[in-house]
Design a protein around this nucleic acid. Structure first.
Length: 272
DNA sequence: CCGCCAGCCTGAAGGC
DNA sequence: TGCCTTCAGGCTGGCG
């Protein structure tokens, strides 16, 4: 699953079911999903909150240790009162009441057990819902960056929480060509990126995220934002603004979708 | 520091 | 019915 709206939707569903509950046991069907730390340091611990940082879920406890979860490409956390018959369950957290199942087809996600002041990430930028993600911040982060803006939106040290679907959606709504060198964006465009990153992610949260393929909410349901996607996955279909065909290109080994008519590159500079 | 690329994994879907 | 290739909501580490 993966991007901010999906992780935030999971967080909201899990919070009331996990907060205040004691961890009874970990059952690791695939031990290597524990990337660092020891799950034994959480046995008997009581969960005190379910938080999110970028695309990570952060689950602190009444012990020094906290559980960090990243969903990778295909991970999710299912909450069930009783064991079911789900496929691809890599780990099960047995609670005082209920079970948290880590379902991850491609096993690119994982668990980290660590203290809150030594999280698994380094250089994680603010996400677009944080006040510190503003024009001043983003202008500085993008200045002197010659790389195309689209892959930079996926760089979690520039802005956290945005992944491949929402990067294309944000750029479409901002009217910016994904190939635009970041340093060539003017202040007006950077401002639009700040505002639209925020509004697109908020709208997606309203719909409990996007299920394009594998993502499931913690109750097993699908996110409903897919119906509101304007370009992602719509190669060859008509642009919803102008009717021209949506194009797919590959940047940094990832698909980017955009409308060549609605999303323009800046004009080449003289001499340059 | 920056930009690019291979690699990590598994499963679904499409072509032949 | 295979067999093979391509494609996937992410991120890390290594190279130049």
């Amino acid at each position: 699953m993966p991007e901010l709206p999906e992780v935030e939707s999971l967080r909201r569903q899990l919070e009331p079911n996990l907060t205040g509950r004691q961890i009874i046991a970990f059952e690791l069907a695939m031990p290597r999903i524990v990337r660092s730390g020891d799950v034994r340091s959480l046995l008997g611990a009581r969960i005190t909150a379910v938080e999110r940082k970028g695309k990570y879920l952060v689950i602190p406890s009444d012990r020094p240790a906290a559980l960090f979860v990243h969903m990778g490409m295909t991970g999710t956390l299912l909450f069930q009162l009783e064991a079911g018959h789900e496929r691809f369950i890599r780990a099960t957290i047995r609670l005082q009441r209920g079970l948290v199942l880590f379902r991850d087809i491609r096993t690119l996600g994982g668990f980290w057990i660590a203290t809150l002041d030594s999280p698994p990430w380094k250089n994680l930028a603010p996400d677009p819902l944080e006040p510190s993600f503003n024009l001043e911040y983003l202008s500085k982060a993008l200045s002197h960056r010659k790389a195309p803006i689209k892959p930079l939106l996926l760089d979690q040290s520039v802005v956290s929480g945005i992944g491949n679907i929402y990067a294309s959606e944000i750029l479409f709504r901002a009217g910016i060509d994904p190939r635009t060198p970041a340093e060539r964006l003017n202040a007006r465009q950077v401002e639009r990126l700040v505002e639209l990153s925020r509004s697109v992610l908020l709208e997606a949260i309203e719909s409990k995220g996007t299920t394009f393929r594998d993502f499931r909410l913690s109750d097993g349901r699908d996110g409903e934002f897919r119906q509101f996607l304007k370009v992602y996955g719509r190669e060859g279909e008509s642009c919803l603004k102008c009717g021209r065909k949506v194009v797919r290109i590959v940047q940094a080994q990832r698909s980017s979708y955009y409308c060549p008519a609605c999303q323009k590159l800046p004009r080449a500079r003289k001499g340059g």
